[in-house]
């Protein structure tokens, strides 16, 4: 077993390396590959948070991400949207998070009464409805999306100082990651996982199952909202297409690539997805049929390794460990139980 201390060291090392990447790579790579991967990873983390701790796969996360983005766009000075508030960007971002959490709680209170595959379907329906709302309600989504959304001044220019927004995203991602790890060990987090493993027993023990789940969904909405706010800070624009069903599925794909049950997998998956998306079209065989190629990659992953890349890493690691200690006494894995979402 790799000791916990070593895990920490590796983690800190990764963050330090990540922090100096903007000095190594071009502005484009920093902005369009690294920052994009961090933001998509954060959105995927909200999905994986629910999947790993709650045993739920939610397809409403990108919708909530959009709620946050559109709220910011409507509250601040921008081209498109409501245009009546012209609020300070920080206040607007804070309010956007509040709105997103409220919407998340509303969806959560409804969806948290369902399990597994029903939850998937219900959240997909909610996600698509949010997209349809912004697509149709042009008062809220502007003429051609909301463009030129102002950024916080400290971020400088997205063009000239791409590393600033990158560092902000990196810091928030690290905080969210640590927060989720911490949350999993709080009494509340343990109760949430307990519900995943045995709902009737938790209910019998006197836990308010619906409340706990709803609050957990609210937390996930908060994480998705953070990603949504960062997205408009970074991209300075948002349109209904941002949260269309295609991107919803690709966010799920990111989570699957990374491994649905490992938080850090969110960013691994996002990075792989962003690189594939950026590079696939240069492959002659693929050309403009990038979506087909991504679909095939997705299909292969769910067919071959439902644990995604992190699952591959883990199975390789455990194989290596087993071959070292032939006894096989070591339990593989580090205790994060992978819930079986299947009914039996």
């Amino acid at each position: 077993m790799i000791s916990a201390r070593l895990h920490w060291l590796i983690g800190i090392g990764i963050v330090i390396v990540a922090a100096v990447l903007p000095f190594v790579f071009s502005n484009f790579t920093t902005s369009q590959i690294l920052t994009r991967a961090l933001i998509l990873g954060l959105a995927a983390a909200s999905l994986i948070f629910l999947a790993s701790l709650g045993g739920w796969v939610s397809l409403a996360q990108l919708g909530l991400y959009g709620v946050a983005g559109f709220t910011v766009g409507n509250l601040v000075q921008a081209d498109g949207g409501a245009k009546v508030f012209a609020m300070d960007i920080w206040l607007a971002s804070l309010l956007a998070l509040v709105v997103t959490v409220l919407v998340g709680l509303l969806i959560g209170v409804i969806a948290s009464r369902s399990e597994g595959i029903y939850f998937l379907m219900i959240t997909l329906a909610f996600g698509v409805i949010i997209k349809l709302l912004f697509e149709k309600a042009t008062d809220l989504s502007g003429f051609g999306g909301i463009n030129q959304i102002i950024q916080p001044a400290v971020l400088g220019s997205a063009q000239l100082d791409p590393e600033r927004i990158y560092w902000v995203c990196l810091a928030i991602c690290v905080l969210v990651y640590l927060g989720i790890r911490y949350f999993a060990h709080t009494p509340f987090g343990l109760a949430f996982q307990g519900i995943r493993d045995n709902t009737p027993r938790m209910r019998a023990l006197g836990y308010n199952v619906t409340l706990i789940r709803t609050v957990a969904f609210g937390i996930a909405a908060f994480i998705a909202g953070l990603a949504g706010v960062l997205n408009v800070w970074w991209n300075t624009q948002i349109s209904p297409g941002t949260i269309d069903i295609g991107p919803v599925i690709f966010l799920l794909m990111i989570a699957i690539i990374g491994g649905l049950y490992r938080i850090e997998g969110a960013w691994v998956g996002a990075l792989i997805y962003v690189i594939l998306d950026n590079r696939l079209r240069s492959v002659d065989l693929v050309g403009e049929r990038v979506a087909t190629a991504l679909g095939i990659v997705f299909l292969l992953i769910v067919l071959l390794s439902p644990g995604g890349v992190m699952g591959i890493y883990k199975s390789l690691a455990s194989r290596w460990r087993r071959s070292r200690s032939e006894s096989g006494a070591a339990r593989d894995g580090d205790g994060t139980a992978a819930p079986t979402v299947a009914g039996d």
Binding site: G116, I256, V341, A342
Partner: peptide, 15 residues
């Protein structure tokens, strides 16, 4: 494996 089956059909629908 309901979730996996749903994911497989999602992938097919993208293609």
């Amino acid at each position: 494996q309901e979730l996996r089956q749903a994911l497989i059909t999602i992938a097919l629908s993208i293609i």
